[in-house]
Design a protein around this nucleic acid. Structure first.
Lengths: 227, 227
DNA sequence: ACAAATTTAGACAGGCTTGTCCAATTCGTC
DNA sequence: GACGAATTGGACAAGCCTGTCTAAATTTGT
């Protein structure tokens, strides 16, 4: 309804542009309506293409769905690794740097369109397509957590943190900085910039209170166990 | 497939028993297939009744769906408040008591059939039925978190914890003790007893490392910042 | 055991969806 | 400008699903 603005104003789009357009529209419709509820006519309309074109490009509904998931998975993983690459390995202000990192992680990977849609599709249809799930599970969370754990291990080795098990710390870091966004995520909503910042700030403070080495121990403990 | 064992062996079931049977089957089918994909014939078969009986009891598909959500919401909230009532207000061994509480919370509220199904339904259909969502949001997480926050505030007041904002602490507590179960939840799976215990243990330890008052400060910090 | 209420199986109409086919039109390229 | 490829819109069959209706069988209460 509110779509069709920008796509339709460029009547001549290339073959490839239409393929992308279709996958985009399909992503949005599959997420909104679920696999069973998604309607090829609606996808075609939302993509600004005829139904036949959808079939020409993707064969049938199931293949189109696969294409959507593959597409989403790739983009999400790319985004996650690009963001992990910005991890503060040599922090100036550890708290501020970790908060900024957490905000980037949330904005670029978890709260953006791709992240929210992929999550919803996996939750809704993951059990029906175990193969798709398996691929995502290997490529996605598994490698993400390892990569993040390695960064935390380096921080610990450099004396900025005190961590027993970097894998546990990485998972808890992500859990903490998202703690206040759970409900919004649950409903597929988009948290405001301010909510993201607040959740990240609270999460990182607690994380540092638990894992900060004595050199960088936060105000909270300093105030409680002085001298 | 694996259903129909116990229900079918009792051919004479009361009116009310059939209503429950139908709602139960509907819950399972709606969760598995989504609203659009759910099929009344299948629900009837899985409940061991005729299709007409489903219509006699619940009118139409949408009303049946409402009944399912209402049912699930009520049972879940009851379970959550019953479990919060077992919060360790006068802890003997704070760490052990909080771990046991976290395990109860997970087993009775979050990992059980009702919890997993309600979460999945809200994620999948929450946007389509804002009214249902609103009711759940008020009754569910809102009150849960407040109740839990109040308990943590009492622990802090009694000197067992050191907490600035009990609401934040409550949310972070839940996030931490579930940190390692996220992927399993995402796929609608059921974590093993051991996974629940491990996640709770790791979560509570980190929670206490961050929020423990100096009297109960955990080994982790004692070992790192001696004398 | 009898009468009322409930349940059942099946048929059925109406609507919607997928996927195919085709003739007419438009597009990209030379 | 002309040719081949892609796109379009619409018609179409086949299947599935919801929700209704019926007549027969069963269960419940008394």
């Amino acid at each position: 309804m509110k779509l069709g603005v920008s796509p339709d104003t460029f009547p001549p789009r290339s073959h490839e542009a239409k393929r992308i357009s279709v996958v985009d529209a399909a992503t949005s419709v599959f997420c909104r309506e679920g696999y069973a509820g998604a309607n090829i006519d609606l996808i075609a309309a939302e993509a600004g293409v005829s139904r036949q074109t959808v079939y020409n490009h993707h064969g049938d509904k199931e293949k189109l769905f696969m294409a959507v998931v593959r597409d989403l998975t790739e983009r999400c993983n790319a985004g996650i690794f690009a963001t992990i690459a910005t991890f503060p390995d040599q922090p100036i202000d550890l708290e501020a740097d970790l908060i900024a990192f957490a905000v980037r992680m949330n904005r670029n990977c978890i709260c953006n369109r791709d992240g929210r849609f992929l999550r919803k599709l996996i939750q809704a249809e993951g059990e029906r397509y175990p193969e798709l799930f398996a691929e995502w599970r290997e490529q996605g969370p598994g490698r993400t957590w390892s990569a993040l754990a390695a960064r935390f291990a380096r921080l610990a080795y450099a004396g900025h943190l005190s961590i027993d098990d970097p894998d546990v710390a990485a998972r808890q870091f992500l859990a903490l900085v998202n703690a206040e966004l759970q409900i919004t995520f649950m409903l597929g909503g988009m948290p405001t910039e301010e909510e993201v910042l607040r959740s990240a700030t609270n999460g990182v403070r607690t994380f540092l209170a638990a894992f900060g080495s004595y050199k960088t121990t936060s105000v909270r403990q300093a105030a409680l166990a002085p001298a």
